[in-house]
Design a protein around this nucleic acid. Structure first.
Lengths: 200, 200
DNA sequence: GAATTACGAAACGCTTGCGTTTCGTATAAC
DNA sequence: GTTATACGAAACGCAAGCGTTTCGTAATTC
């Protein structure tokens, strides 16, 4: 087939390695979890990815740009349950969240990024549009299903409910250090149904 | 009066300067707020305090020791209101908390310490025993008063309630970036009274 | 096979902060 | 006045990481 004249010409030299690209992003993600954003160095990323530093700077203009792209790829997607019961749906999501926070990598990721988010809008956007949004969307679906089912009141502040539920987890993980376990999941569901449930 | 023989002898040379001590701690606190723990350097603390580095190392054996002592001194104490109404009491505390978070220094302090807390038990303890405990104690009092008054149910999980309320603030400040204002304060009080209030 | 570009590795000069030491001065007990 | 300690300031040698450049090699187009 003839090449379309309007196509951009193919690049001349050796193409950039997709493997290197993936390895670099994976290394950046791992290092954010392990040492946080502030202590993450380009040298360490290159070393772990098995590339030279020049390859990093050839593709990303700064550490901030590299890390924000890497972080954007992290999405711990929790399935939206559909058990037919709002209580069981909520419980399923909360228990999955407990498991998510039980992974030390999640704590490392969050704690390692919070400081950077406060100072870099680029990092903040990547985190919020990434796995923060993924988690919120799941909870939102469950709540909307609960409303449609008539178990939760119409007109409740869904964003507030999401913040309350998610905030409790992140607060325990990042600030108070209190336990995050299935007992908490049950207590949260009970509280949510009391606070946002339709009157019996 | 004769000196008691059992007393420890007074130190021989020039006594350590209390002013320098206070200036160093104040400088450390300010720098934690501005740049976070990871980026806080002993040189910067000394420079801001107007002392030499030697004075720092003469008194604290490490950056961690210095910062944890400094952080322990920060306590934004919120008064325990006593309006006679559980709703108004809660509202007063939540509004004070909104004001607390409206101060950029609070956000800087929290975000700058979260990463350090995840890696240093010493820092974590200082923060939790300091202003985290101070805030929690205030809310606990208000809730206990509400229970005693019969407005909140006996047997509720007070720690959970505190985590829910406080977590919503810290989650918005540190993670989601959603607004923290008086509207949120009202919504939180409404939710708390629904979730933990006694049946009418 | 010539030209072009990316690769990993290594070294570059530079800056920052480390924790320590040295200096002359100041403030206390004896 | 002697001794002892703390002071602020400055310099020390050291290590880490910056962002760049150079090298010989590999992959791709023309």
């Amino acid at each position: 087939m003839k090449r379309n004249r309007l196509e951009i010409p193919p690049p001349r030299g050796r193409p950039r390695s997709g493997e290197a690209h993936a390895a670099i992003l994976a290394a950046a993600v791992a290092l954010v979890r392990e040492v946080g954003y502030d202590a993450l160095t380009m040298e360490a990323v290159a070393a772990r990815a098995g590339t030279g530093k020049a390859t990093l700077y050839r593709r990303w203009k700064s550490r901030e740009a590299l890390v924000s792209e890497a972080v954007g790829l992290i999405v711990a997607r929790i399935p939206v349950p559909s058990t037919g019961s709002t209580r069981r749906d909520l419980l399923a999501v909360m228990r999955d969240t407990v498991r998510l926070y039980a992974d030390p990598a999640t704590l490392g990721l969050l704690s390692g990024l919070v400081a950077a988010m406060a100072r870099s809008p680029v990092i903040a956007r990547a985190v919020r549009n990434g796995f923060v949004a993924a988690w919120s969307d799941t909870v939102r679906r469950v709540i909307e299903n609960g409303i449609a089912r008539g178990d939760l009141r119409r007109g409740i502040d869904i964003d507030l409910a999401i913040d309350l539920l998610g905030g409790c987890f992140s607060n325990r993980a990042l600030v108070t250090g209190r336990p995050i376990d299935d007992r908490l999941a049950r207590a949260l569901v009970d509280a949510a149904l009391r606070g946002f449930g339709a009157p019996a």
